[in-house]
Structure formats: structure tokens, C-alpha cells
Amino acid sequence: MTLAIDVQQLTKVYNGRIRALDGIDLEVKAGHIFAFLGPNGSGKTTLMRILTTQFRPTSGQASSFGLDVVRDSAEVRKIIGYVPQETSVWADISGFENLLIYSKIYGVPSGRRKKAVRQALQRMGLEEVATNMVKTYSGGMVRRLEIACALLVEPRILFLDEPTIGLDPSARKAVWQNLTSFKKEHGTTVFFNTHYMDEADLYSDEIAIINRGKIVKSGTASELKQSLRSEILRFYSEDGNNVDERTLNDIRDLSMVSNATLHGPRLDVAVEDGERALPLIIGVLSRAGFTFSRISSAKPSLDDVFLRYAGQINFKEGGDDL
């Protein structure tokens, strides 16, 4: 199967000294939604701009559906849609006019143009404001119009650079609902950069985290979360009796447990895999005669994953509080 995006040993050096990308390898399967995460200045936008043929890489290779982004750049531009981080529609004409101009630039045949514009407006829920000037639009509407412009030609890959930055939660949700329904209908591959971990978690099939020009971790959201091996199980004492030091040490000695700490009547146990560790811990506790009214588990979020692999703060293994 041809990969939607195939990146090999890609580097980009600015002005001969700033290494924005430092040997990136990346594969994105066709039809997947791929989230690219990283702190500011980590090289996310640089990679996107190379993939969308705006920049040439310093070395290495990148291709979209087998088309090389440097050698076949004109062909690549025909199969991709791109929404940059900054506003990319004209504010002094209407939404409809923006789509019309873009449909002409993208070469939508005149017979299909009206229909394509109408569909794009409908897909992004902009029919009612189509004839209003773009400068009267809200941030979310502008973003949806930009995506609508990119979808006019039904691209095989859609590149979105921080698609929901600066939008309120309901506008973000609207953007994603429209995007996912379009994707379902057309099987478009979506590659997006983001800071919002919840979006990557909810909408992506695969994630890669970049830091200082290198990919530090990739996989599905659940794989990434599991890779932290730091689920916290919380046991709440029924009668206020605290677990004694010996039992605490017994729990710590279990192979799957990385740490156990007491917080008043609550016992926190940091484990790699909660589902398998839980019966063992309960065994130790019941042999020692302790009963608990409630057990809760706190799984690491994608935020924790991000902080671990790309954050500057050191993540304390099995920390006593999440």
C-alpha cells in the first residue's frame, strides 16, 4: 500500500546553523488522521511547509503518495489541501466570493464550480453567512471557511497547521465535526499540527511528538499513554485505618508496582498496568486485613505523555500526585 506521507532522514537547516529538523522519519497511512505534536519552535511548522512544497529540505526525502515533494512538487500541489496557521482568506470580500476565487485558482471546471462551492459551504456549515463579508465572521467561521476552501478540490491529503488555535471549545468542536464527517465521506488523509492534546487524543489515528527537530515518540494515543507506565491506583480506606509500613513495603515489592505512598486515609499506588496489578495489590491488602470503600484509577493523559517526551519539566516516575 502506498503511504500518504513517507519521510526519510529529513533535515532542514536554516542559515547554515539552525537545525529545525534533525533527521525525521515518518510514515502516515492513507486515510489516517495524523496528529503532529510538539512545543513551540520544535519544527512542526517547518515539516509541514516542506511537505506542502513551500520549502526544500536540506537533506533527506519526503513524498506524498509516492510523489517527491521536491522533484514532483507541481504534482504534489495538485493532490494536497493546506490551511496555514494564519488567516488565509480575503476579509474584504464575502465567504462565497473567497470560495469562488479559490475554485478558479484550483482549476475546478466551470460546470462544477457552483456545485463545488455550494457543497463546501454546506460541509462546513456556512450556508447562512455565505454572502456576508468575511470581516464580519467569528474566528471559528473563518477557520471553517479556510478549510472549505481547501476541500474544494477534494484533496487526497489535507494539511492543517494548528487548525483550532484561538478558538473557543464549541467552535473547535464544530471544526472537528465538519472535518471528521468530510473525512469519513472521502477517505481523505489528514495531517495536523496542534498544541491541543485533547484533539490529538479524540480525533487522531496516530500521533508523533517532535522535540528540538527530532521525533521523540510515535504511536496511537493509547500506546503513547501506556508507554508512560504510570497509572495511579487510589484506595480509599473505609474506616479511616491507615495501611501500616510493612504492608506498604509489601506492595512496593510487587513487580508491577513502581511506588506506593500514603496520603491520610488514601493509598496511592503507581503501576505500569493497572488491570493486571490490581488483583495482586488487593491480595496483599486483604491478607493484611485492610478493607477499602472505593478504588479509583487515574490513567495518564496525553498531556502527561507530552510533558514526559517534549516538556522541559522532569516527570517524576510514579509521582505521588498526578
Binding site: 513551500q54 493546506y82 488565509s88 484550483y106
Partner: peptide, 14 residues
């Protein structure tokens, strides 16, 4: 250029 319009035009098949 300050907005994203030029980037977009240069990524269009033109």
C-alpha cells in the same frame, strides 16, 4: 504575506 494567503496561493497548483 503576514496573513497566510500567500503561503496558500503558492501551495495551490498554479
Amino acid at each position: 504575506r503576514e496573513t497566510g494567503i500567500l503561503k496558500r496561493l503558492l501551495v495551490a497548483p498554479a
